[in-house]
Design a protein around this nucleic acid. Structure first.
Lengths: 176, 176
DNA sequence: CTACGATGGTTGCGATCGCAACTATAGGAG
DNA sequence: CTCCTATAGTTGCGATCGCAACCATCGTAG
């Protein structure tokens, strides 16, 4: 009866998930931190606004599960740097509709290909069937934990974005 | 042509991994933070020492990929709280061999079942084949990113710890 | 119209983290 | 033996984060 289970950290799922996520994030974050002067929270806001067009800070916080203070500060930074501005039609006096400026859009369009390339690079180490299973499992876990999920299934073969672009250019660097 | 690639954050793998890991971690961390007064870094050290028996701070940092200052501070805390002590046979004057005190061992043996239960609970939302695929994919990704991995495959059915010992019980609560 | 609870967003503050610098010991090279 | 470099571990410091408190506005009840 008195069986104390042994636990090897390197086989413990929560630890492994954390470590993997941290590693993946750091790789990617370093690129847009050093080259474009933005950090993870800022990137998430750019990505949300880039896809959604416009939404409130509250909506960003809800879908990304970032704390609202984190969103607030990152938005303040992006507004000062001219990547984000408040949208005109302010229905509710409390909320602030946000959207990308042209400059923010250019930065977004510069970052997206990098992000997608990194994602593909990651999934490339899994053969297609395994990758599909992995994504399926991810979806299940997210569902079980009641995390916000994208509605429709991604176009087969491309887990995240899919479209390609003629555009490339855009020079939206920063540094402070 | 200027169709910029769209990227939906909710389908973007690095983001999803981060969010999932944070969610899983937080769930678990809250338990041993509130009930036992230890935090994630401390837990990782307990887990490492519990399984390894004894090792240096450097070894802990390497295998967990925590920054050495984080390890240093967590070890300091665990030593003050009487869960960890320096082991006798100090070969090298620079390093410090660490090990659990009996009290640390009791806390470890209290936490392990909670951790394993949580892990099982998580994997239970995946049917066995999918869970196996998920773990396989995880392993591949870790390998691709050159993260430290456990050597031998886990006994089928039990992803993490498995072994039993004679010891059990112990009441090792704390709070500060 | 005024009062009041709820919500969107910001700010003060304490805690944590990582980097860089530091101390101390180890292990050669001359 | 002394110098020099590398490694184990600690500490000072600035940056980030989350919580709680706060401000402003909305919606509703009286």
């Amino acid at each position: 009866m008195s069986a104390a289970a042994e636990l090897h950290l390197l086989r413990f799922l929560p630890f492994r998930l954390n470590r993997l996520a941290a590693e993946v994030s750091q790789n990617l974050a370093q690129i847009y931190r050093q080259r474009y002067g933005i950090d993870v929270p800022e990137w998430r806001i750019l990505a949300t606004l880039g896809a959604e067009g416009r939404c409130t800070a509250q909506a960003i916080a809800a879908s990304t599960r970032m704390h609202k203070t984190r969103v607030s500060r990152a938005v303040a930074f992006l507004r000062e740097s001219g990547h984000v501005r408040v949208a005109a039609g302010a229905a509710d006096g409390r909320e602030t509709q946000l959207q990308l400026t042209p400059r923010g859009r250019r930065l977004y369009e510069t970052l997206v290909p990098l992000a997608l390339a990194r994602e593909r690079e990651l999934l490339a180490v899994l053969e297609p069937a395994l990758a599909a299973a992995f994504l399926e499992a991810l979806e299940r876990l997210e569902s079980a934990l009641q995390l916000p999920r994208a509605e429709s299934a991604p176009p087969a073969g491309q887990p995240a974005g899919s479209r390609v672009a003629g555009k490339a250019s855009g020079r939206a660097a920063r540094s402070p």
